[in-house]
Design a protein around this nucleic acid. Structure first.
Lengths: 115, 115
DNA sequence: ATAAAGTACAACCAAATGGTTGTAGATGAG
DNA sequence: CTCATCTACAACCATTTGGTTGTACTTTAT
């Protein structure tokens, strides 16, 4: 059984990490290519340290992991974490459905009680 | 035809807005109930103005809209916007798939060329 | 053995966040 | 009309964010 519960804090970090275009691009690139932090950094018009910080944020959110290979750190995106975020959003859909279901039940009840 | 394109800035705002537990709770509540800003504010241990700001952020993200009713503003969650965010995340899945598809194609090519 | 490459990390800064209080404008109730 | 309610908005403050530069450590290359 897979425990599919994310704490509020984890959800915060995931969405926070996704709320930046550079970080989303880093995720995309590392989904497709095998890239080190400095190779990633080359793609953006900002300092290495800035990109490093973005990767760190993604890592704290669990959207990315780093693997040492020689003197490089290879960044790997974790697609499963993205799927989790997606499934988390299902939650809202379910809440909405259960609300309308209850309304439906209420209406149905009205009908039965009214005749 | 529905143009389903979100700008980087819109995506930023949507995920930023979702990256806070209070705001996610506001979305949940306003999905289920018909609530004014002050009714929402009663649910949280913070000032009215603070909740007002959260609602404003959600509104800027398009996750919520306000409708005037007398002196109250009724907050309504927009489920469609949440679905959009979900579909946006599909994007990553597709990128990953197309990457492995390309790898598969490469491997298939290798097989045909190797015998 | 050096030098260069890749990374980590600290210190710093401007801007944005998440909260507060206070004031003022609409609107509904008595 | 007057008062209470609901909201808007500004000013303020502490913390976080997103960037910078600089220094130091590890690993590879010459």
């Amino acid at each position: 059984m897979v425990v599919d519960e994310l704490t509020d804090d984890e959800v915060n970090r995931i969405f926070r990490a996704l709320a930046d275009a550079t970080r989303r691009d880093i995720v995309r690139r590392s989904l497709v290519f095998t890239l080190s932090v400095s190779e990633l950094a080359d793609a953006y018009d900002m300092s290495f340290a800035a990109v490093q910080k973005h990767v760190a944020l993604l890592e704290e959110a669990g959207l990315v992991s780093k693997e040492q290979r020689g003197r490089e750190r290879i960044v790997r995106a974790d697609l499963e974490r993205i799927r989790r975020a997606q499934r988390y959003l299902d939650h809202f859909e379910q809440i909405w459905r259960s609300r309308t279901d209850r309304l439906d039940a209420l209406l149905a009840e009205d009908e039965t009680t009214s005749h």
